[in-house]
Amino acid sequence: MQDVVIKTDKLTKRFGDFVATNAITLEVYKGEIFGFLGANGAGKTTAMRMLCGLSKPSSGNAVIAGYDVYRETEQIKKNIGYMSQKFSLYEDLTVLENIRFFGGIYGLTNQQIKTKSEELIARLGLEGEAKKLVGSLPLGWKQKLSFSVAVLHEPKIVFLDEPTGGVDPVTRRQFWDLIYAAAEQGVTIFVTTHYMDEAEYCNRISIMVDGKVEALDSPTQLKRNFKVSSMDEVFYQLARGAKRGD
């Protein structure tokens, strides 16, 4: 029996008459890379916001890293990391200042921040850039840095919202190396993406259509179930039935 770090039970969010996410039930295990797929407007972002404690569910239950999404959002926030599709570091601060700032607001001590930032800069090979403004770095580096900052406080779960948008395939591959390394350390990765090759990198994936989770399994199993040869086709078969779009 694996450790369950995310457990949702009929998690639902309504905005007036509109049901953004409809009774989502899923489990994510410790150290797993979980792909959270769906077309635009399927309700991924809403679901993710609830899991992060940013938005209160209308009904249903969810336990994140052992904490309840209704009552223990503060505890949840301490135990998760987050990286959004928009680039999420401060461009007018240097690499070191960004690390120091995010370490600081997660309550790390100065000593911790110091050792961790040295470690991080060495791992990413940014020694020459540590004192440069983040805005001057190429996008791929920014994103790697952004991810490293998101796991700086050693969260149990990292939520990645389309982290590799607009990045070339080589950099994307390198980015996924970082994700694998984090997962090996026992960090659970919860990632949304539109790239089907990335979906193949995940241990398991769920596909959302019109607010519901329509499929949940490993990529291999999903392809077998749908009797197709690629994730693209699995996704297409499910998503073309969607009524909602942009």
Partner: peptide, 13 residues
């Protein structure tokens, strides 16, 4: 606008 607000809101701050 930069999306950093989201990060701040997700943090325990």
């Amino acid at each position: 606008e930069m999306g950093t607000m989201e990060i701040l809101l997700v943090s325990p701050f």
